[in-house]
Nucleic acid binder design. Structure first.
Lengths: 189, 189, 189, 189
DNA sequence: TATGAATGAGATTTCATTCAT
DNA sequence: GATGAATGAAATCTCATTCAT
């Protein structure tokens, strides 16, 4: 087994356990067992449990930015680009439940304070630039990009959470309507 | 010290510690210290740590519903009622940071699964009814209330989180704009 | 069992284990077993293993000062007082081997750096005063008390170590000669 | 890098770490890092950590005997030869602090029991012979050489420890006086 | 010889919970 | 009810040692 494999196995084991049981109640011994490595091996790759958890967050944010923006085509109409962004977000997380639940748990926990504000912003820079330009070109409401992004992401995540909860199954057409709810709120009136 | 006081002291100590350090890293012994009671005393009021945490959630939800709906006047225009609801939400949580952070941590953790789906819905019943009626009376978009509520609350909470993060200070006029972003999205077009 | 007993039991268990196996190789679990307490109980009395070890040193130094000086009679001839001091030292440690071995191990380990120089001097203050006065009254050589004390204690401890090693059994008359070796060296010529 | 260099590097790294942190708290991985070799390499030269530590002791004792006796001239007056021995001891250790601290730590730890009594005596044989002959020729007190050596070395080491502690700086003339303290004690009266 | 990733037993410490007072 | 000393299972993490390369 290659080094890469072990590190990945540890990441995946930790992700799964945190989602199932929370940060507390995800002992390193279980992570080791699920990853099929010795307990000590984890500490070869990560200094501590906290560092592993934070690395998991970083990894996720990087993967997500890749997914959301790799195919973005700035020459197209912003509304269309934004719709694709919105659907990619929804689709990825509804298909990768664990990543979403981990993310929500992480950013709402004191773990997030491990990072400086500047570090956190760095992870969200692509989204920030995406929205800021659209405000600048008068496509979106003239309001602080931070506010707009918060509201967009907040409602999108809430939607994803609803779908993942199993409490309600969102149809494709409802998703399109949800997109419009969002769009009608943020577009320049 | 009255019994009431001790229970309250325990609640508040636990709240503060969870906010500062997370569920993990908030030992009962610290809770006892902060509440100025003996460790054993906590177990007179709560069967276990988990039960205490869940009771804290229930207490919060009940208080919140009281705050949001006690002065609601169904005879007024829905848009105005909804605006007040929106502002109450924002104001309460930006003034009671700990409650908000605890809530977000709780509902994104596996602790929330302690409750059945029915129990959880019960806590949100007032909000659900509030929105459902407005859809029924054709004030709001004809879309599942669950979707609409998710999006409304998701974006509102994200806004509160932005304000609490200290990363950006939302002005009164920006708050009104944010309300319009929300309203323009959900109102029947 | 009273609190006092448990703390004492922990002290004694730790002493015995360190003497037998060294700081390393004296796990807290074994200390707990030997002291007949739960592992956690140790941490009720001491913050850490290091703190326990340091507390053991403090306890020993205090007991030793008590033993060496409680019956000292300043009205007697210094040579006689010093002889008693010398014999008390030898007798106590040859009868309490563990204390001696622990002490030697401790003061030659980096643990000793836990204490400031001032703290360490405090423990040796009675001996320092004892010797300093005798230099001042021209009984002992006119040399820095620190040097004199070092040499006295160094040779006395080496003698004790020889006896405890089992390599050689020092007779009473040899002990008296040893005392003279010391005395002839330090007395004002 | 030659084999010789690596072994030396390992010895020196171990010495430094033990002095700074003690036997416990000197992990082999750190030794490897300080010696600029891989962890596994240490095990080509030494069977185990314990063996490395013991080898370090043996190396030191052999070097020390070389230093103390290589220039000893039996045709000279014993008092002068002893004075040189005394000063060599003091000078070497005050200039090679780490060696001294390691030595003291080692001989006061249970590690020393790795060696049989006979082995230990072998290392001290040159000193033993040196003193025994002087007793036999009636220069020194007629007392067991073991006792005399213990007292000499004990007080000398204590003096070195005082100097190394930084607590007091021993001047050349004080060192000569200290020598006399020792000499007056041990010479045949 | 040399490497250093990997191991896993075992170390220290924590902490929810109990129970005698 | 209230206490807090005591428990001991379990958590995190360390580290001497091995072994495939």
């Amino acid at each position: 087994m290659k080094e890469f494999d072990k590190k990945e196995a540890i990441f995946n084991a930790m992700l799964e356990l945190i989602v199932k049981h929370g940060f507390h109640a995800s002992p390193m011994s279980d992570v080791a067992k699920h990853a099929n490595v010795a307990a000590g091996t984890i500490y070869h790759y990560f200094k501590s449990k906290d560092e592993l958890i934070c690395a998991l967050y970083v990894r996720h944010k990087e993967q997500m930015n890749e997914i959301l923006f790799k195919n973005d085509d700035p020459s197209r109409l912003f509304k269309d680009r934004f719709r694709i962004f919105y659907l990619l977000l929804f689709n990825h997380y509804t298909k990768n439940k664990n990543e979403f639940i981990f993310l929500e748990q992480f950013i709402n926990s004191p773990f997030v304070n491990t990072f400086s504000r500047a570090d956190l912003q760095k992870f969200d820079q692509p989204t920030y630039d995406f929205i800021r330009k659209a405000i600048f070109t008068q496509v979106l409401r003239d309001i602080s990009p931070k506010i707009l992004i918060s509201m967009i992401m907040g409602s999108a995540h809430a939607l994803i959470k609803l779908q993942l909860s199993g409490e309600y199954n969102i149809s494709l057409s409802e998703l399109e309507t949800a997109f419009l709810v969002c769009w009608d709120g943020i577009k320049r009136p």
